[in-house]
């Protein structure tokens, strides 16, 4: 599966995502500049983490105006796989490809640590190789991961099984103490109704080799690859 990794001014996890899919998973991959509207026949697009445009106005707010995001939207409309990680998730929210918005972390500070997340939906291409209830160890690193959504939209999100990952304790229990940023319903990652666009705050590319402390993130990339083979 050919992966395209977007680069915005201020992206800083693009090399990490590229390394994970290209070197760890052995898939073809290409960087795509934000000014481009050509997705180069990629079968999956990764919107990587970082601080696009410094996040000075609002996380992801300026990146959504980039020419490449128009192409990504059309790609998603045709059913293409789009994975937004951290700042990439924030960009997908601002673009409207995913519902909801991000607030500052409940503790107001940047948080970088390993967390546990529970896989809630395995019927989408991103988690097909996982079992429901699997607990993954995976790092987060963000200042604005406090996901929010009005009550009614949240109900519909839950009804459609769009919550893909939730922060949980090591044993898989969803507790307030396991929530590192205050996000509603412990949401760590969500997908669109069709299941081809996923946004998540944790970084699967940072959990893709045993040396880094976890390789649970590999399941996600492998699931994506499997879904299109």
């Amino acid at each position: 599966m050919k992966f395209g990794v977007l680069i915005f001014p201020g992206s800083n996890c693009e090399h990490d995502a590229y390394h994970a899919v290209r070197k760890v998973l052995g898939q073809p991959a290409e960087f795509i500049w934000h000014q481009s509207t050509d997705l180069r026949d990629c079968q999956a697009i990764i919107v990587p983490g970082g601080f696009s445009y410094g996040d000075y106005l609002r996380t992801g707010a300026i990146a959504r105006f980039s020419p490449v995001m128009g192409a990504v939207r059309r790609f998603a409309d045709r059913g293409g796989l789009v994975l937004g990680i951290c700042n990439g998730f924030q960009i997908l929210l601002e673009t409207g490809l995913l519902p909801g918005a991000m607030l500052r972390n409940r503790g107001l500070k940047y948080v970088c640590q390993q967390v546990s997340i529970r896989v809630e939906n395995v019927r989408i291409p991103f988690t097909a190789l996982a079992r429901e209830g699997d607990v993954w160890t995976i790092p987060i690193g963000h200042m604005e991961g406090n996901y929010t959504l009005d009550a009614e939209s949240l109900r519909s999100l839950e009804r459609n099984r769009q919550v893909v990952f939730r922060y949980c304790a090591a044993d898989g229990e969803i507790t307030a103490g396991a929530n590192p940023n205050g996000s509603v319903a412990n949401v760590a990652g969500i997908c669109n109704a069709r299941g081809n666009v996923l946004g998540m705050m944790p970084h699967p590319e940072r959990a893709s080799e045993p040396l880094l402390g976890s390789e649970d993130g590999v399941r996600l990339f492998q699931s994506m690859i499997r879904s299109r083979s």
Binding site: A20, Y110, C112, G141
Partner: peptide, 14 residues
């Protein structure tokens, strides 16, 4: 202190 620092970006921190 270090929880506030991104100590993992670049995926080299072993």
């Amino acid at each position: 202190v270090y929880r506030q620092y991104d100590h993992m970006v670049r995926t080299n921190t072993v």
